[in-house]
Design a protein around this nucleic acid. Structure first.
Length: 115
DNA sequence: AAACTGACTGTTA
DNA sequence: GTAACAGCCAGTT
């Protein structure tokens, strides 16, 4: 427990809030780093979302693959990016070879937390 | 302590 | 469509 005078929002706690927001993204939909950040109460925390996801323990049930950047592309590259693409395809989210959500599908798969 | 580094984003040209 | 750049924010050198 944080001692007297400790900030009640340490990094670990913020990471958990971010993870919870990510967990709220329904299967077959995707959201962006920015939207997740806002949902977690961090209006300008997009970069922090990326770091929080990178800090996920291996084998976590958090659907990290549903978080992509504001341009509708996967921000992960290399093997990690391929794995993300694989997982998205597995839930019928259309992703091109170069890691972009198919434009027509992007419209319907984006999850903004408003709905 | 300063510099560097990204799983970021919006603006401008 | 691209590219550059400025903000952004915290972990790592």
């Amino acid at each position: 427990m944080p001692g007297y005078g400790e900030p009640m929002h340490d990094t670990a706690t913020l990471n958990e809030r971010i993870w919870l927001a990510v967990a709220a993204i329904p299967p077959g939909r995707v959201s962006t780093y920015g939207h997740v950040a806002a949902a977690a109460g961090l209006p300008r925390g997009a970069r922090r979302v990326g770091r929080a996801l990178g800090a996920l323990p291996a084998g976590s049930a958090i659907p990290w693959h549903r978080v992509i950047n504001a341009r509708g592309e996967l921000s992960l590259s290399g093997r990690a990016g391929q794995e993300q693409r694989r997982r998205l395809l597995a839930e019928d989210v259309q992703v091109t070879d170069d890691g972009r959500i198919v434009r027509a599908a992007w419209r319907t798969t984006l999850y903004t937390f408003d709905d």
